[in-house]
Design a protein around this nucleic acid. Sequence first.
DNA 1: CACGCATGCGCCCTCTGCTGGCACTCA
DNA 2: ATGAGTGCCAGCAGAGGGCGCATGCGTG
Length: 643
Amino acid sequence: MATRTSTRSTKAVKFVDSTNDDDEHEFDTSEAPIIKVEPKKAKPRGRPRRNRSSNDDDEEWDAGNEHIENDDEEDEEVSEGDEDVTKKFKTNPVNRSIDSVYDFGEMSGTARKWTKTTTQTPQRNSTVSDTGKSMEKLMCSYCNYTTTKKYLLQRHLKSHSTERPHKCAYCDRSFKTTIQLTNHVNTHLGVKPFQCKFCSFSFTTSGELIRHVRYKHTLEKPHRCEECGYATVELSKLRRHIRTHTGEKPYACPHCSYCSPDTFKLKRHLRVHTGERPYQCTICNFRFTQSNSLKAHMLTHQAEKPSFPCSYCPSVMARKSDLRYHIGKQHARQSEPLSCNKCDEDFPDKYSLRMHGKTHKGQTIHSCNHCEFSANTSQQLEDHMNKHRGTRPFQCSECGLMFAARADLRAHVTRTHRNAATPTTTTTTAATLSAAMNSPIAMNRRPQRRAASLQHRYIGVSSGAEDEEHQEDDYRCPICHRQFTSARLLDRHTYAVHEPKQDSYDNRDYQTNEIEDEDDVRDYADDELEEKPKANINIKNEMHANQLKLEDGITDDEQGLDEEELDLAPIVEDIIDGDDDFEQIPTIKSISSAGRKQLGIIRKFDEIENDDDDDGLSHKRKCIINRDEHDEKPDFDVFGFNG
DNA sequence: CACGCATGCGCCCTCTGCTGGCACTCA
DNA sequence: ATGAGTGCCAGCAGAGGGCGCATGCGTG
């Protein structure tokens, strides 16, 4: 089993022998020879003829030879008694049996051993014999193939022949050799004579078996990227990987500017244009373009959904990325303390401030100095003050009328332009796009999602006139200059893309320069929480925190409470104490809401029962209702979610 | 010539993460 | 009634694992 310990950025990999947990049985790919493979240009279909004189193939040969040379060196090291990779083969149970790894059962008598094969592979570029005598080069008159042996050249010349005398009895194909025909016929008959010694898999050819054994059992990965250390079984996979470094994307979409590094991604992308949605939900019949979208969707039908509890507050997210954003947004310590606008008390993060705001519940402190007006929010007061000042900053984009307050403008739009297109840039965009898209019903797709998806692409490629339209809402990333339609999306983009991909504990404190000791950085109020395990939510958070600690390799000893965060801890205590204000905390309500959804309880439930598809209800709600109507967990496990 | 093996190309799958917008809550 | 905030979910691309099949070539 290959255990990936890397992130995407590093792509470092650790490969562990699945057959034995002992360290000495690890197949240490770190000692695998590093080969450098230059990215190749897209080739026409079909295996190209190996041409020793061509540059591309010389690279292949060089790569192969380097591997072979390393193998030879390893053999020498064994003789010197060093503990190198090859010696590990001889002491490792797996590697002891490496000789039999490629033992093809009945064919074992003729099967060669792996080490023998590699060491016996000749140096193909050499024109000097083992005895040092120079050998005469024989050259193919059709290509640049050269060899020193006449019979090899004669056989090679047959490869230029189009004659295929061996015809398949089951299809129209024909082959040059009987062995080719035999292998092909086996694919018709389902005959797989090459059985794996380690598992029940069988294969048509020996090469497939070898590759399988390397993938599944020996984890031998001879092809290594020298830039990042990624190693793989197949050279073609290494080439594909190298494209991630070079950015080469040779497969262009004929319908848009998208280019793909491989054919599969292009094919998958083309579904965007064709509308093909091959993956259908067996519960609600909704269709998806990707299998994993369906898989994620299936979770919405399940009673037990994955949850990612926040370690800082009782919030629970359904997705890891949402949790990361939540923590970054709510619990990131601000560079400047956040002051309560009702009592001027300072708080280190938004969550603390919000929790503190609860203590002012019922208070109205946004009072007008000129009249008796008072507002709940500063924005409402600001709008009110426009009336005293006589300013009307809010203009109707339909008729040009000016208003002092947002509420007044909205009321005007509702009254006067209700049936007209909403004069916002966002909806204008969606409307423009909606004209161009196919019928969502015909495409078995919810209209909103269809529009959202199209708008996503629209924003991604927008330029020129469209950008001008968005200029007044310029939510542009200052780092990558990408345009977004809202501040929230820009925020989330920043957290997701430009913030370090560390655990949220780290994010929280690395964002400030206040804590210098890295150990302190990993702290949160776990100690405080341990002293007051009074609520289940605390236990859940603690478990999650422990999980994070395990993932980060942090020991309990390293988990100390940073005194600088004590200002937050009392608030957490209040939450976990389960006091009477519990239900008043918004994030608690989030949980409560999620819990209600999990139980199939949702507000306005009765309104939905007479649903006939054009009621504007969300797909999510319909799914919940479906489940509720059945009043039990759906009987399916098509994806093995239940184990 | 048969065999073993390396390799290329294609295909499918899974996991992961980012993004847009809906739906809901609250002030 | 409204706007802001935010959880949830669908859309979709990046990356890699694994296998099917075909072809080329060294070796016995």
